[in-house]
Design a protein around this nucleic acid. Structure first.
Lengths: 119, 119
DNA sequence: CCGAATCCAAAATGATACTG
DNA sequence: CAGTATCATTTTGGATTCGG
């Protein structure tokens, strides 16, 4: 049984989650990191439309909240960002949202190619 | 096998989803509706902190995007808001986020009651 | 009391240029 | 490469008000 009846508490839980991952970019950054990107410029390129300003700010926020860690690579003198286990706890949320987006695009495509009745 | 390797396309799917449900209130309104609230004031009361202004605006957005429908009840002369099947397609996302929030609260509680080593 | 509109303040985000 | 600084724009929210 995968269905639960929603309770008023669910509203609180949902608010908390929205608060933590709020904004346009945090989940996208987490996804980029989980795709294996570790360097600032790589993450920047992997997320269409994000600016260095927002990436820098959001990485700082995510680091403060223990969602990512920042490491200095002594050899290459580069900064690497990595996910934490805490970040991985968002995987089900990200998966559900990615899946919704994929389905949505499929639906749009299907509707475009399906003939419609004309008035 | 429930795990997928993330692809660059996933970034696009995730962006689309964030765009559609973006903001602080939309998912909360959908949850409230799925909890059975149909009237403006009921929804308003069920979401702590939301103002009539934001609820009104977001309901309008959700209606335009076919996520909710607005019905006039002729008997009581009241407006009823109801979810659509499109709205229900977000259930997995909402469930995942509610579940994350619940776990998060449990973790916080557990940590608070677990004795810590003192320096 | 329900639902929406108006005006204004604050916060989030964007564009662009620039630094070590 | 890894960010910062500055300024413009957009989004969000508060307070108030107004008509059913």
């Amino acid at each position: 049984m995968t269905h639960r009846t929603p309770t008023p508490d669910d509203t609180r839980y949902l608010m908390d989650t929205i608060y933590v991952i709020g904004g346009k970019w945090r989940l996208l950054i987490m996804l980029s990191l989980s795709q294996g990107h570790t360097r600032f410029s790589d993450i920047l390129r992997s997320i269409p439309g994000i600016t260095p300003r927002m990436l820098s700010r959001e990485l700082k926020h995510l680091e403060l909240n223990k969602i990512v860690v920042r490491e200095l690579n002594d050899d290459t003198d580069n900064t690497d960002y990595r996910v934490t286990v805490y970040c991985q706890s968002f995987d089900p949320v990200v998966q559900a949202m990615v899946e919704w987006g994929r389905q949505h695009l499929e639906n749009i495509k299907a509707d475009q190619f399906r003939p419609r009745a004309v008035k």
